[in-house]
Design a binder for these strands. Structure first.
Lengths: 209, 209, 209, 209
DNA sequence: GATGAATGAGACTTCATTCAT
DNA sequence: TATGAATGAAGTCTCATTCAT
């Protein structure tokens, strides 16, 4: 018994990636068996090995692709440095939330399954994560210099706002009561607030002359 | 071979808990074997079953104990409702950070290994987590009513600030450059900021007449 | 992708045989996979099945061809029965060593991989091996009758001298210090000696009258 | 279901060794599965891993033990150097045949399954084999010096006589027609003859005056 | 209180082989 | 002539767990 007529390598690989993303996110890397994964796309377990040499390679491929796309997408959208830091931070928050809107599972994987990577693979992904983090660090550092953001450890702040946003996929459900745009705005404001209060230059006097 | 003289059930159970907390956090529930766990405390794997009926039971025990202690501790420290919401939020942030200061691994487990629980166990832990979350929701709701916090979805905000704080153990290292008190203060400010800028009712005129 | 222009079935089959001989000898029948074999000659694994119906068929083909050629070659060189047995044994030894000189791997296979044959195939090869062995048995029997070889079990002796010679490919390296002709002569003498001392007809008396 | 009452680790390990020796010899290392091996001694396959960490480790243990015992046994029996080389060679042949008389399978394994060893393990066994071979090389070298053995490459000769003797287990059947003592004597003579004819100093005249 | 022996299930992975193209 | 896709069986090995001692 050979293949189903019309089977197609490219399509199959895509299907594996999609299923793996979903199922790794749902059950965890260790808890998901290759058989179960293959079953999901009506394939014998052995067929997976035509596309990925090991289970680990699937996970790595997923995380690597995710980070590469993330960095490329941000690169395309990154606002110029001359813009005020707070605006850049807002842009970043919007970007981060939007980019992951339909990449919920990938985002989830990208921090939940780091520990399932082999040391070598971990190091590679860590580098990319660090690069992404650095984008935020830079923005916040600039804001501190400008005096527009709270003058404190930029890296800790960067990590905190990323963690804040990454909390979203843990509870978000598509059929929930809040609309994506609302959530977007909410998170943007929280990020902004976490990085420091927006102190208005001009404040109406409470005690007029 | 009989038992080692002086071996002590209570001590052993405590040792199992401690080792399990550390090792589950490091390797993940699925990735840690009972043999490896037993080895860590110089025990045969079979001996573990004298203290816990299954591996799952260990995880559940850890998470349940953690949540119970967390709720009890907060109960003991919770400020009265009459205090302004922002102050209560600050108190909560301080409590959360401090309480987990030496419970890093437990905190980590309590959100990373939720999915490793059986449905029944998951439901129980979820209830406790929800109860804890509700404490923050209440504070923020009160703050919104008071007008002192940003008038937005209280539950989303609560989740966000918790996620923000839970990001800490992912990067914190004891031998790092920032002292615990500094981190504490920093996170407190970020939480406060995320929940809404502290808009002073009374602002001294910057440009007095 | 159509076939490579100029690809040629006969050539391919020859290439498979050559590669299989080498690789079976190096790794063993069980340890060599069809994929690995196909790779060696830049072929997809499936293509092998155009030339041989099963892996077992390749091994059998190799061993059968080897034995057929061996018997045919000896048939062409076999000295007439009227020649003294010791000379015939010498001729045989020379033939055996020379014939296998560039058939090292085949010789190796022909006794190392007998057990990898299916019972039917084994029986066929055994018959041929037996026929070859019989050639030596006959020579030695004749020698015993003649009184020129040690009067002992001819079959055991035959097997022993064959084993003695078959030990060669286990250690022989082309770049070794001893030349093929030297080795040839050495083995010839050892075979001859193993079959019985050459008792000279005429011996100078040690106690002359 | 736990263990059968009275099961005993030492006995089990011994049983594994015995079964592995027999079955590796019969089917080959690669062709024998752990399941099949375990079955032979009424054990679940998993139980094997309490005694040997890998399949490879079983093979290595077998070959190492065999070689160690072989060398130790010869050490205990080795005739002193002052004895004439031909006598020492005879003693060696007798020893080799006798020692392996009830170690047929181990002997078979020790040259048939060398290639199934990992490089590291192979190197260790090779060293031992070389040490054993050297014993014969020494005897033959001495014989050449003495003038009692054929003046030729001692190492090649050593290998040849060992190969000659190792051919025995390939065909020997306990229920065959020739008795062990007969075989012993026969092989001794063949070895002796292969190493060079025993040219008697004194020969009675065949043609007396 | 603790362990040594064992197991059945199931993990990842490789294999020889098939068949439409 | 050759291959790309696929499969079912089987491989080695690990796992949580049991139970007599």
């Amino acid at each position: 018994m050979a293949r189903t007529t019309g089977s197609d390598g490219t399509r199959t690989k895509t299907a594996i990636r999609a299923a793996a993303t979903r199922l790794f996110a749902r059950y965890g890397y260790e808890a998901l068996s290759m058989r179960r994964l293959a079953e999901e796309i009506d394939l014998g377990a052995a067929a997976l090995y035509r596309y990925f040499p090991t289970k680990q390679a699937i996970l790595f491929d997923l995380l690597k692709t995710h980070m590469d796309q993330l960095l490329a997408a941000w690169d395309a959208k990154r606002p110029p440095d001359r813009i005020p830091a707070r605006e850049r931070l807002n842009a970043f928050a919007e970007f981060h939330i939007r980019h992951h809107w339909d990449r919920n599972d990938s985002l989830f994987l990208s921090y939940m399954e780091l520990r399932s990577l082999t040391p070598d693979n971990f190091a590679q992904i860590e580098d990319l994560r660090r690069a992404y983090e650095n984008e935020v660090v830079t923005i916040i550092s600039d804001g501190i210099e400008e005096g527009s953001l709270r003058p404190q450890n930029a890296r800790v702040t960067a990590r905190a706002v990323i963690a804040l946003m990454n909390g979203l996929p843990a509870w978000y459900r598509e059929d929930g009561p809040i609309s994506p745009p609302e959530i977007e705005k909410l998170y943007q404001q929280m990020v902004s607030g976490a990085a420091g209060p927006d102190i208005p230059k001009e404040i109406p006097c409470s005690t007029p002359a």
